[in-house]
Amino acid sequence: MRTRYSYGGDEHVFVEIGDEMSLEAFFKSLSMSKVVRDANIDGVTEICPANASFQVRFDPDVIAPDAIMARVKELETQAEHADKRLDTRIIEIPVYYQDPWTHETLMRFRERHQDPSGSDLDYAARINGYDSVDGFIEAHHSTPWFVSMVGFVAGLPFLYQLVEREKQLQVPKYLSPRTDTPKLTVGYGGCFSCIYSVRGAGGYQMFGITPMPIYDPEQKISYLTDFMVFFRPGDIVKWKPVDRQEYDRIVAAVEAGTYSPRIAKVAFDLEEFNADMTGTNARLMEALNDA
């Protein structure tokens, strides 16, 4: 992992913590973007953390590009000494895998897919060495995930699974992006899962759909009245498989304003996790189940 600094035009400093994805890179990028934010540097207008990199937007009329670059580099050392511990929350997200809506959509765009003969899940299960789609789905929801980035479009979370690298699921994106993806599709591309916050174009494989809205520009949904975007980087997610009946029940509850997501406050310590993944995940699940 070697940190690489560059400019994105005359208004952005770009910092790549590592060119490959890892929890270490994610933690350092989150921690460093936090240190830069806390430094309250005059002329910095926005900080965007990503999976293994982050970006600082600045106004060059207020702070010279080489001055902001030097400041951000200085702060790297501080971030390296920061605790690799995060006070965050774990959220249960219901997923209706193999739902009819993403299935209809994936059939419409079959000619853009690596394997037009089956579904996205058939393909993902096969190339990851699973005998059955059910086994693959279980691997997808059996351990928690980190929200490692929020973006692409409004409020869309990228998620990275809390398992050893050799157990990470990897699936390429569509050969050519679709022009349509149902709202709230649970997708997969590279080593990341995502939830499409809004309907639109997309290149990730489609596994299912969640009944729980995560973006509401009108801020009418009961748990989105404070802010229209649900996720923030550092959130932990546990997928919970649901059937059609449960899906419909949650959709109705959201509409009635009676749905509240299951959420628990947790602390996540990277070193503790690396020393004992099963134990750490079990402790996270315990906190969630108590909520």
């Binding site: 035009g9 952005h12 490959e20 965007c48 999976n51 590279g190 990341f192």
Partner: peptide, 8 residues
């Protein structure tokens, strides 16, 4: 690895 994009 998916990262941030700069305007422009």
């Amino acid at each position: 690895v998916d990262g941030c994009y700069s305007y422009g």
